[in-house]
Nucleic acid binder design. Structure first.
Lengths: 219, 219
DNA sequence: TCAATAGTCAAATGTTCAATTGAGTATTTG
DNA sequence: CAAATACTCAATTGAACATTTGACTATTGA
């Protein structure tokens, strides 16, 4: 092994280290929705401001995010769409090879009843159903996240308002709910709520960032 | 953020940490060629036996490799083909976003002269050229690596014997050389040597593990 | 059964990392 | 220009990592 190739692996390992912390993964997932200033990110992840700032700079040194000043705020954003794909692959590998992961995901989503009965929808199936206008898409993220980009034609009803706005949803067509990504629980909650109310509803198994990273159209 | 979802991110981060060390990345790359016992891996990477063993166990805890005893040797192997894809993605992201990476890769391969003149061949282009029998494939890895799997129809001439065995290569067809992966220098050296000798020769830009991980046929 | 081989484990060392605290900086607003 | 906002930076503390060394364990072969 030459000295240079050692240096190549070390540089590459820098990316690994950046991905080697749960808080940083959360920050990346949040950034996959849309760029955001430090304070917003700190709140979203429950980190102190200084700590969030330092994690973000760690990510910046690894080349995964960039920062841009706007007034007195620093907006951070992912440098590369492929980072979403990268995290998705890590997830797939973890889910198929770590028993621990299976247990946790079960615990996160298993919560209750029949919502397992209906298979979640894959990206491909959803793309096809959308093309044929067979389903109504429901985005249960916040208004801001929706505003920054969403699947084509999706209706936005943030999860905490869903119960009050059931009249905006069709009863004669299947509804597909989605949120931030595979570990976001909002769409699970939405499905449970809507099923109780008698709607025909399923989940899209990923989320907005994965859809976008796959190169599919967004609004 | 729920407690469980925090635990999910931490578990995922375990994979990141495992990828967060240059020596471990080297071990993974070596394992992408074929399974191997600890001592072989230690030699290939220049690590002490104990140190290699500990890195391997780190990888095992992260679910990236598994071990199997055979006599007095422990054979380690990748648990999942997708790990090759994961490392490939890290590489792509690093190359497009880190100036440092560009510099190092240039230094690793730029070495000399005209070998840049000919574009390396992409996986797709190579697959097509093979299907049409337009090229002769040359595998310059060791006999063992070749024996554990290689691209369909490839001739094996380890790099250190290439100069003595030029008569086994055709002068009337383009040759495509490949080795262990994108950072392996053997195929670069092969191309340089063969070009000096008047052969028509190019590189396949990745290597055996990437070809295999992409689901393409191997021998 | 004894020696040799191939690896793992435990302890010890120096290094890097994560989080907190408090001070410092850039930008806007009154 | 002064105060407020939104960060960033430096210093500190305890935890986790990487490496070496030497002891320990499992398997084989004489």
């Amino acid at each position: 092994m030459s000295n240079t190739s050692r240096a190549v692996y070390d540089t590459l390992a820098g990316i690994g280290r950046a991905l080697g912390n749960g808080h940083r993964l959360e920050l990346l997932e949040r950034l996959a929705q849309t760029e955001a200033p430090v304070e917003t990110l700190a709140q979203a992840t429950g980190l102190s401001l200084a700590n969030a700032s330092q994690h973000l700079q760690h990510l910046r040194r690894a080349g995964l995010v960039t920062a841009r000043r706007e007034g007195r705020q620093m907006y951070y954003r992912l440098t590369d769409e492929r980072i979403v794909t990268l995290m998705g692959l890590m997830r797939e590998i973890a889910e198929s090879n770590l028993a621990e992961m299976e247990r946790l995901v079960g615990q996160l989503f298993g919560g209750s009843d029949a919502d397992e009965a209906l298979e979640p929808m894959s990206r491909e199936a959803l793309a096809q159903a959308l093309a044929q206008r067979e389903v109504t898409l429901l985005d249960v993220r916040t208004r801001e996240e929706y505003g920054a980009g969403h699947l084509p034609g999706a209706i936005n009803i943030p999860m905490d308002q869903l119960e009050q706005m059931l009249d905006r949803l069709p009863r004669d067509q299947e509804i597909v709910a989605y949120c931030r990504g595979p570990y976001c629980v909002l769409s699970h909650e939405a499905v449970r709520l809507l099923q109780r109310q008698g709607f025909r509803v399923r989940r899209y198994e990923e989320g907005y960032p994965e859809w976008k990273a796959a190169g599919l159209p967004t609004d």
